[in-house]
């Protein structure tokens, strides 16, 4: 693997390989000193052109636990504000010697453009509404861990909310389908992309009709700016139709789990405190973030020897 830019590029085998590798990383993270020298001498540069808390911090933590050096690029203090082009920025950092770029940008396709301008590996940490592959890996790993199964055949993943503007949804639709899950999208038509007929999904506009057959309920964040664009009339109406409250939690089959990529909009899509629910995986999603990103960086940067190499170092 040279880059991690989308789940489709990664493919089924790549997804499985990274999920297996994550298991090793979870073990490392459980040690008293969760640090290995696997990527000593490697440099990982974070290029975050968009705000992020958990993704940026989990990538940086992951790099440090593998002993890589990190370089953080912050748009507000960089030459981008002096009109430097993205290409010049990438080439400048490449010249300093980096092995991987971790990139988040509000525009679709930026990781592909960057990989034309550098020899370093490119990891997509979210591009526009397009892809967020490490979040999908985190979510698949979290479900695997919680349900104790490698394949998701027979499971139904229901993704609720603003699918149209969600890179998390796009990556998860691919990843969960690859592992065998049925995917149901629930949203008003205004929050769905224009034509999903080629996606391996079922579409519903009524949450109450699909809850009873949902095994994994995935709530998406609704950004308040969607109101001004006419996607939904107001938050109250959205919450009424698509928000998760106690009544709807009660409609889920026993054993169903709840997920959310964060940050949550309490009172909008989340009308109940998820920490009161025994079947919420939201905290595991965050804690697995570091392990998954360690697996990704290790897979990209450690070379051929891969997992066996890791076991040696870990022992």
């Amino acid at each position: 693997m040279k880059h991690l830019r989308s789940i489709d590029e990664l493919g089924h085998d790549g997804v499985v390989r990274l999920l297996e590798l994550t298991t090793h990383m979870v073990e490392i993270n459980s040690r008293p000193v969760p640090k290995v020298p696997a990527l000593r001498g490697r440099t990982v540069a974070s290029l975050f052109f968009e705000d992020s808390t958990r993704t940026r911090l989990s990538f940086e933590t992951a790099a440090k636990r593998l002993s890589a050096d990190t370089m953080t690029f912050s748009v507000s203090t960089s030459s981008v504000n002096k009109g430097e082009s993205l290409r010049d920025t990438v080439e400048t950092i490449t010249d300093m010697g980096v092995d991987a770029f971790v990139v988040r940008h509000k525009s679709t396709g930026i990781p592909w453009q960057i990989s034309d301008w550098t020899d370093a590996c490119v990891v997509n940490a979210g591009d526009g509404w397009h892809q967020h592959p490490t979040q999908a890996l985190v979510d698949c790993f979290t479900v695997r861990q919680a349900l104790g199964r490698d394949r998701f055949d027979g499971l139904t993943l229901t993704i609720v909310g603003d699918i149209k503007h969600s890179r998390v949804a796009r990556s998860n639709i691919s990843a969960f389908s690859m592992l065998g899950a049925n995917v149901v999208l629930v949203a008003p038509p205004t929050l769905l992309p224009p034509d999903v007929s080629h996606w391996p999904v079922e579409v519903s506009h009524r949450l109450d009709e699909v809850l009873h057959r949902t095994d994994i309920l995935y709530m998406l964040r609704l950004q308040s700016e969607r109101m001004s664009q006419g996607h939904v009339p107001n938050l109250r109406e959205y919450a009424e139709a698509f928000g998760l409250d106690a009544r709807r939690v009660g409609m889920l089959p026993s054993g169903a789990v709840l997920m959310h990529p964060g940050p949550m909009n309490r009172g909008v899509e989340m009308l109940i405190d998820p920490s009161t629910l025994t079947n919420s995986l939201i905290h595991q999603q965050v804690s697995n973030g570091v392990s998954v990103r360690m697996a990704v960086l290790f897979d990209l940067l450690a070379g051929e020897s891969s997992a066996s190499h890791l076991s040696q170092e870990a022992s």
Binding site: T108, G109, W129, H130, P194, V196, H198, W199
Partner: peptide, 18 residues
């Protein structure tokens, strides 16, 4: 809008030009 409103724009997550 960046590209035609179509299946591709759905998958690429780009705003469509209908």
């Amino acid at each position: 809008a960046v590209m035609n409103e179509c299946q591709c724009c759905t998958s690429l997550g780009l705003p469509g030009w209908p």
